[in-house]
C-alpha cells in the first residue's frame, strides 16, 4: 500500500550566528494511512523540527516531504496554508486556544478560517466536544477549563475539518498523568476508528508506546 507520508533525504539546517546547526540530517521515512507513529528522541534530536516540516510549518533545506502525493516544497504559501486548513489537524503542547473564544468557537475555528459561517458550525463543533467528553462545557472559555479539558478542546479543533493527518507536539507535556492518559486514549480512538494518520512527538516512552510504532531520532537521524 502506498504510504500517506513519504519523507526523502530531509535536511534542515539553522544558522546560529556564525555557526550552522543541522537539526535533521537526511531523514527518510514512510508513514501509512491510519498509522499512529510516535517520534521520540532526546532534546535537540530534531523531532520537533521533523514535525514542523511534516506540517508545512517550515521549509526544508534539502529533501522532500510528500503527503497524499503532494510535494510540500512545490506548494507556495497559499497552497500550504490551504493544505493545512483542509487536510491537517494540529494538537499543540501549549494548547494554543484563543482566549476570547468559547470552547465550541475554538473548535469551529478551522472551518471558520475556511469561510464558514459561525452559526452554521455550532452543531458540528458541539458534536465533537461531546465526543471528547466536553458536551457540558461548550460555552466555557479556555480560562475556565483545566489542562486536560483544554487539550481535549484542542483535539476536537484538530478534527473539525476531518483531516487525513493529525500532528501532535508533546500533547501530554503539560498535563498530569491522568489527564495525559485520557488524551492519549482519545488520540488513539480517533486514528483507529477513522483511519486517520497520527504523528506524535513525545519524550515520554509510556506515551510513545500507545502508538503503532516508534521512530527514534538521534542527532537528526533516524536511529
Amino acid at each position: 500500500m502506498a504510504a500517506l507520508i513519504e519523507v526523502r533525504g530531509l535536511i534542515k539546517e539553522y544558522r546560529r550566528g556564525e555557526e550552522g546547526v543541522r537539526a535533521l540530517d537526511a531523514v527518510d521515512l514512510d508513514i501509512g494511512l491510519g498509522e499512529f507513529v510516535s517520534i521520540m528522541g532526546p532534546s535537540g534530536s530534531g523531532k520537533s523540527t521533523l514535525l514542523h516540516l511534516l506540517g508545512g510549518l517550515d521549509s526544508p533545506s534539502a529533501g522532500s516531504v510528500t503527503i497524499e502525493g503532494n510535494d510540500l516544497a512545490q506548494m507556495g504559501d497559499e497552497g500550504l496554508t490551504e493544505f493545512r486548513r483542509r487536510r491537517l489537524g494540529f494538537v499543540f503542547q501549549f494548547f494554543n486556544l484563543l482566549p476570547t473564544l468559547s470552547a465550541w468557537e475554538n473548535v469551529a475555528l478551522p472551518l471558520l478560517l475556511d469561510g464558514g459561517r459561525l452559526r452554521n458550525l455550532r452543531g458540528g463543533a458541539v458534536a465533537l466536544l461531546e465526543r471528547v467528553g466536553l458536551g457540558h462545557r461548550v460555552d466555557h472559555r479556555p480560562g475556565e477549563l483545566s489542562g486536560g479539558q483544554l487539550q481535549r478542546v484542542a483535539i476536537a479543533r484538530a478534527l473539525m475539518a476531518d483531516p487525513v493527518l493529525l500532528l501532535a507536539d508533546e500533547p501530554t507535556g503539560n498535563l498530569d498523568s491522568e489527564s495525559g492518559a485520557e488524551v492519549l486514549q482519545l488520540l488513539r480512538d480517533c486514528t483507529r476508528d477513522e483511519q486517520r494518520t497520527l504523528v506524535m512527538v513525545t519524550h515520554d516512552a509510556g506515551a510513545a508506546a500507545v502508538g503503532d510504532r516508534t521512530v527514534r531520532l538521534v542527532d537528526g537521524r533516524v536511529a
Binding site: E78, R84, F90, P110, L113
Partner: peptide, 10 residues
Amino acid sequence: ATLRALGGRR
C-alpha cells in the same frame, strides 16, 4: 501563528 498554522490566510 496558531491561526496561520491552522490554515488562516494572511
